[in-house]
Amino acid sequence: MIRKLKTSVMAALCCTVIGGGLAGCDGDAMENWDPFAAATQKADADLISGTKKIDVAGQSVNVSCSGDPAQGAPVIILMHGAGDGLDKMAAVQKTLSEKNRVCSYDRLGSGASGKPEGAQSLDSTGKVLTGVLDRVAGDGPVVLAGHSLGGLIAARYAPDHQDRVKGVVLMDATSPTMLGDIKKAIPESAKGPAAEMRAQNLAVFEGQNPEMLVITDGEVRSAGNIPVEVIQHGQQYLAAIPEYGPSLEKAWAAGQRKWLALSSDSKLSTAAKSGHHIYVDQPEIAVKAIQRVTSQAANAR
């Protein structure tokens, strides 16, 4: 029971823990990469169909694309949570591709993509996303649809790339203040499973995860008036954590509301029958939200 509980909660907090630390890691290669200097990425104009590995700043990134492109319509980019990969979003991608052009990708350290060369930041993982967008969407508009950690990355990316990100869907996205939320909800004095959960998640946020991504708290910055939909889970599984579960649920719900500041045109909804993986538990809710945002983004052009 403890093992099962730990697995579900770690997923909810966007985490998959690894044992090793980051000693000796060097993230300079990704930190200093200028995606706009990589003209060859945009020059490669053949349309990706199916799954293919592309080169982004010398790193192998696994990408999957499906559906037909439409003039002026945004390309939907699906972004998985930590510990997952693009394969887990395949069913939703297939459904969406009946009407839209859809792509997904494995971040460095995830799925079939290469491992990062060193510690990553939200900035460096965003540069990889830029390289992917250059390849699959060129200069065209995109809608980012992210789950958990993928949602956090999408929401951090959008304000700095308003020229290309024209809509965002966040599916139970990791809170913008999750590190502080964990420390507040589960005090340092906690014992038992809750204490283990606290320690493991803090380690993950410090970079002890397959993506070697250091996850920091921060204010939500605006991406203008692009359409944004935030979907939160309705099945309060975090409440199962002894003593501290209700506090975690409140913190998670508060984090979802904070993401509404991403746009002046944002709304929050609840997937009543869903746990953390909304696109698996209630895929129709995820699909309709992504389709709505994509349609709004297309009509706004």
Results as ranks from 00 to 15, higher is better:
residue 164 R to M: 02
residue 158 A to V: 12
residue 251 A to L: 07
residue 157 Y to H: 15
residue 240 A to D: 14
residue 191 K to T: 07
residue 201 N to S: 12
residue 171 M to Q: 10
residue 245 G to D: 04
residue 211 E to K: 13
residue 148 S to K: 03
residue 187 P to D: 00
residue 204 V to E: 02
residue 208 Q to D: 00
residue 255 G to Y: 11
residue 246 P to C: 01
residue 158 A to K: 12
residue 176 P to C: 11
residue 144 L to N: 07
residue 239 A to W: 05
residue 219 E to G: 14
residue 163 D to C: 11
residue 218 G to M: 06
residue 225 N to S: 15
residue 233 H to A: 13
residue 178 M to E: 13
residue 181 D to T: 05
residue 259 W to H: 11
residue 226 I to L: 13
residue 181 D to I: 08
residue 233 H to R: 15
residue 181 D to M: 08
residue 236 Q to L: 05
residue 168 V to C: 12
residue 154 A to Q: 00
residue 226 I to V: 11
residue 228 V to I: 09
residue 225 N to K: 15
residue 260 L to A: 13
residue 143 V to C: 14
residue 218 G to Q: 01
residue 222 S to K: 03
residue 186 I to H: 00
residue 199 A to W: 09
residue 240 A to Q: 15
residue 146 G to R: 09
residue 231 I to K: 06
residue 182 I to K: 08
residue 184 K to Y: 05
residue 229 E to Y: 01
residue 237 Y to N: 04
residue 171 M to I: 09
residue 231 I to Q: 04
residue 183 K to D: 10
residue 155 A to L: 08
residue 195 A to W: 06
residue 148 S to I: 00
residue 174 T to S: 12
residue 208 Q to K: 15
residue 186 I to C: 05
residue 259 W to T: 09
residue 193 P to V: 00
residue 206 E to H: 04
residue 144 L to S: 08
residue 156 R to V: 10
residue 192 G to E: 03
residue 191 K to N: 12
residue 164 R to W: 14
residue 172 D to H: 03
residue 171 M to E: 11
residue 215 I to S: 07
residue 195 A to C: 04
residue 175 S to F: 06
residue 223 A to Y: 13
residue 219 E to F: 01
residue 213 L to V: 12
residue 251 A to D: 12
residue 158 A to W: 10
residue 232 Q to F: 02
residue 188 E to P: 00
residue 172 D to R: 02
residue 195 A to H: 07
residue 143 V to W: 11
residue 235 Q to I: 14
residue 225 N to I: 04
residue 212 M to C: 01
residue 151 G to D: 09
residue 149 L to K: 03
residue 256 Q to S: 15
residue 219 E to C: 01
residue 211 E to Y: 04
residue 223 A to C: 13
residue 260 L to E: 08
residue 171 M to D: 03
residue 157 Y to I: 03
residue 245 G to K: 03
residue 218 G to F: 04
residue 145 A to Q: 09
residue 166 K to Y: 00
residue 259 W to E: 07
residue 226 I to G: 02
residue 173 A to I: 11
residue 230 V to W: 05
residue 171 M to Y: 07
residue 205 F to S: 04
residue 177 T to V: 09
residue 249 E to S: 07
residue 166 K to M: 04
residue 239 A to K: 08
residue 171 M to L: 14
residue 230 V to H: 08
residue 149 L to H: 08
residue 211 E to Q: 15
residue 184 K to E: 05
residue 188 E to M: 06
residue 227 P to V: 03
residue 202 L to C: 08
residue 148 S to H: 01
residue 168 V to I: 09
residue 215 I to Y: 00
residue 200 Q to S: 03
residue 205 F to D: 12
residue 159 P to A: 08
residue 201 N to Y: 04
residue 147 H to R: 00
residue 166 K to C: 01
residue 198 R to P: 09
residue 172 D to F: 09
residue 179 L to E: 09
residue 145 A to I: 10
residue 166 K to E: 01
residue 250 K to R: 14
residue 242 P to R: 01
residue 258 K to C: 02
residue 175 S to H: 10
residue 249 E to C: 05
residue 168 V to F: 10
residue 198 R to I: 01
